[in-house]
């Protein structure tokens, strides 16, 4: 082929790419619509929530909304016990799931032999796919009676039971994401630490885990996010009593979460009633809480990434 041929071929291809094929234009439009639709759906959900929830502020005073009694039949709409219920359970689940999940991730990524690792990783992912109703069953039939007998309390359907089960749901997420993060830590860091005479434990806790900290943080946030939004399991095992118990014993008393309240009462409420608007207000509050958790997580991550980019440039 002589050079002139080459130039001619090149010009034709350039011209072709400016005149794009109809199929390509169509595909691009489809992809663009799909991308925008995610934004549109979130916006629509938010608008819908606002529309149904905002009347609450006319119908119920703010002070009543944050009072301690939730008893809609007699027009008591205090959401404080539901809010504390959700917080207690989420916090309890996080206290169990974060250390346990991180340790599991460290074990799978750093300590387990290769064959065990290949076996454990998919197993954890399967664990994450168990429907929450099934876990709820286990909670009612196995965990709740166990809690009742061991602690000698009137009912096993307590905040503690719910927190344990929620932790069980959050752990697979935490393990999976944290393990991926540990996996991306360059081998050269570990080698450097080992070559300086550090033991395997010192290498893990002083080098590998700190180097993976942004991923570990994401794992924690995703796990907590999952716990806040979970409905089915907590409805089945926490006893559903909207109360604020004081003191440490509160952990072993029944409570009720925001999610369970909506799920339990939405079916029976009259459309457009005060109760109906109050439930939507709870939904809006939930939405804002999980939005805050996610935004915080991505802000921290963004800062970490910016810092590492600055270092590399």
């Amino acid at each position: 082929m002589n050079p002139e041929d080459g130039t001619r071929v090149m010009t034709t291809t350039t011209r072709k790419s400016t005149h794009r094929k109809p199929l390509e234009i169509l595909l691009e439009a489809l992809v663009r619509v799909a991308g925008y639709s995610a934004v549109v759906f979130v916006a629509l959900i938010f608008i819908f929530l606002m529309r149904e929830a905002l009347p609450t502020f006319n119908e119920i005073s703010i002070s009543e909304l944050f009072s301690r009694r939730w008893y809609p039949i007699e027009d008591y709409f205090g959401t404080l016990p539901l809010l504390t219920g959700s917080l207690v359970i989420t916090l309890g689940a996080a206290l169990i799931a974060v250390p346990f999940g991180l340790m599991t991730a460290v074990y799978i990524s750093e300590i387990a032999p290769r064959w065990l690792r290949e076996f454990l990783k998919p197993l954890v992912e399967v664990l994450g796919g168990i429907p929450s109703v099934v876990l709820g069953f286990l909670g009612i039939l196995v965990l709740a009676p166990l809690v009742r007998e061991i602690l000698h309390i009137p009912t096993g359907l307590t905040a503690f039971t719910g927190a344990v089960l929620l932790a069980g749901m959050a752990i697979p997420t935490i393990v999976s994401v944290a393990e991926d993060a540990l996996d991306t830590v360059p081998k050269s860091y570990r080698d450097a630490a080992l070559a300086l005479g550090a033991t395997r434990w010192q290498t893990i806790w002083r080098i590998t885990v700190p180097a993976a900290r942004s991923g570990v943080l994401t794992a924690t946030m995703l796990g907590i996010g999952r716990a806040i939004g979970e409905t089915m399991t907590v409805m089945m095992v926490t006893g559903n009593a909207p109360q604020i118990a004081s003191g440490l014993s509160a952990i072993f008393m029944p409570l009720r979460t925001m999610t369970a309240t909506i799920a339990a009462e939405m079916g029976e409420v009259a459309n457009g009633s005060v109760h109906y608007h109050a439930l939507f207000y709870i939904g809006l509050a939930l939405f804002l809480i999980s939005l805050t958790v996610n935004l915080t997580a991505s802000a921290v991550l963004f800062r970490a990434r910016r810092r590492s980019e600055r270092l590399l440039s």
Binding site: Y189, A192, L196, G197, T199, I207, A211, S308
Partner: peptide
């Protein structure tokens, strides 16, 4: 670990810790 403290290794690519 004692051996590696006595016999150190410098790697091909510099590998300082991200600290």
């Amino acid at each position: 670990t004692e051996l590696r403290q006595r016999v150190g290794l410098v790697f091909q690519r510099p590998n300082p810790f991200p600290q």
